[in-house]
């Protein structure tokens, strides 16, 4: 293995069924259902997936959902705005812990 991530592995995703068919089938059926249009459109779901992909920093997901977003006609500005939402939540999640930091510091300080 030359790298931890191989782009070709994305196409082999379904191979996880080789070691546990039952659970894989359940996962892929559920996954397919999740992305069907519901109260949210398929395009909105795709954009959420793209933002989450960046938050969890999954290169396979970034590859797949960038392609998906572009195909669905999502504009570059919309894609970047979605990323900023994800980044803002991520950044906010760090900063909001600052309250804990401050409380702790106050508590142990004279």
């Amino acid at each position: 293995m030359d790298t931890y991530y191989n782009p070709a592995d994305l196409k082999k995703f379904s191979a996880i069924a080789d070691w546990d068919k039952n659970l894989a089938e359940k996962f892929f059926a559920w996954y397919g259902e999740v992305f069907k249009p519901g109260e949210l459109t398929a395009r909105e779901k795709s954009l959420i997936a793209l933002a989450v992909a960046h938050t969890i920093q999954c290169p396979y997901c970034i590859d797949a959902y960038t392609q998906d977003a572009v195909e669905r006609g999502t504009t570059e500005k919309q894609m970047m705005e979605a990323l900023h939402v994800a980044a803002a939540i991520r950044g906010g999640a760090s900063l909001v812990h600052g309250v804990q930091m401050m409380e702790k510091a106050k508590k142990i300080s004279m």
Binding site: R43, V70, E71, G73
Partner: peptide, 11 residues
């Protein structure tokens, strides 16, 4: 670019 068209009705 190098991608397919989205569903016609949606676009």
């Amino acid at each position: 670019g190098a991608f397919c068209a989205a569903p016609q009705d949606q676009l």
